[in-house]
Amino acid sequence: MFVQAAGLGHELHRPHRVAVLRWPGTIARAAVGDAVERAAGRLGLDVLTGVRGETAVALLAGRDTGGEALYRAVSDELGTAAGAVGVGGPCEDCADLPHSYDDAVRALTVRRRSHEPHGGTGFEELGLCRMMGAGDGEREADRFVREWLGPLLDYDARHTTGLTATLSYYLESGGSYDATAEALRIHRSTVRYRLQRIREVTGHDLGDVDTRLNLHVASRIHHVLDRPR
C-alpha cells in the first residue's frame, strides 16, 4: 500500500480521513473522483482517490476540513449540488483507515436519509446516529423507531395530526408544557390534550423515566431519518 501510494505521490505516513462521495448515476464515479482531486487542491488537501461500489472514495490528508466544505467544493467542480459526502473520523495510522471508511459510510448513509439528503456530514456530527450503520445497523435503527413511535406515526398518517412532533418538542423541552406550546404556537391546554391522546394511542406512560428516554432517542433518530427511502 505504501509503495503504491508513494508511486502516486501520496504519503500515507501521516494523519488521514476517509471521505465517501455519491452523486447521481448520470455522473460517472471517475468524474466524481477527478472533481474531488481538483476540489482538494482548492482546499489545501492532499488526496488519493478510488472507486468502491457506487461511491467514490478519497483519502484526505492536510488541514481538517469538514464534510460540508468538501461537498461544496466538489459540487462547484461538478456543476451540480445533487450529491452527498460522508467524512470519517481521523486516523493517525494507516491500519485505522478501514475504521475511518466505515465511519464515512455511516455519515453518508445518515446524510442521504435525512431531511437534506444533499450535503456533507462528518462522523463527529452524527450524535446518536453514530450507532447506526449501513445494513444491519440501519435496519435496527428503523426497528427501534417503529417499536417506540410506530403507532403514533401511523395515527398521524391516518388522521393528518401532529402528535409525533408534539411529543418530540415536549421531550426536547424536558417535559415543559409552556415551552412546547410556545414552540408549536398552540395553547397550553392543547398540549395537555395532545399528550393525553399520545398516551392513549401508544399505551406508553410518559411519566416513566425509561420510557421517556426511549421515546426521546426514537424521536431524535426519526427526526434525522424520516426521509422516505
Score class of each variant (00 low, 15 high):
M1R: 08
Q4C: 09
P15F: 09
V20I: 01
P24I: 01
I27N: 00
A30I: 03
A31C: 06
A35E: 04
R38E: 14
A40R: 05
G41C: 04
R42Y: 14
R42K: 15
G44L: 02
L45F: 14
D46M: 11
V47I: 07
R52W: 06
R52F: 04
R52K: 11
T55G: 03
A58C: 04
A61L: 09
R63N: 12
T65K: 03
T65S: 05
T65I: 11
G67S: 03
Y71N: 04
R72G: 04
A73D: 08
V74M: 01
S75A: 15
G79E: 10
T80M: 03
A82M: 09
A82L: 11
P90C: 07
C94W: 15
H99A: 11
Y101C: 04
A104T: 01
A107L: 13
T109Q: 06
V110D: 08
H118L: 10
G122C: 01
E125D: 08
M131N: 07
G133K: 03
G133Y: 02
G135F: 11
G135R: 14
R139L: 02
D142K: 06
V145D: 03
W148F: 15
L149W: 02
P151D: 07
L153S: 02
D154H: 13
H159E: 10
T160W: 10
T164E: 15
S173K: 01
G175F: 15
D178L: 10
A181P: 07
E182K: 10
R188E: 12
S189A: 11
T190F: 08
R192Y: 10
R197M: 14
I198C: 06
E200M: 08
T202F: 00
H204S: 04
H204P: 02
R212Y: 01
L213G: 02
V217A: 06
R220C: 10
H222W: 15
V224A: 06
V224N: 03
V224Y: 12
D226F: 14
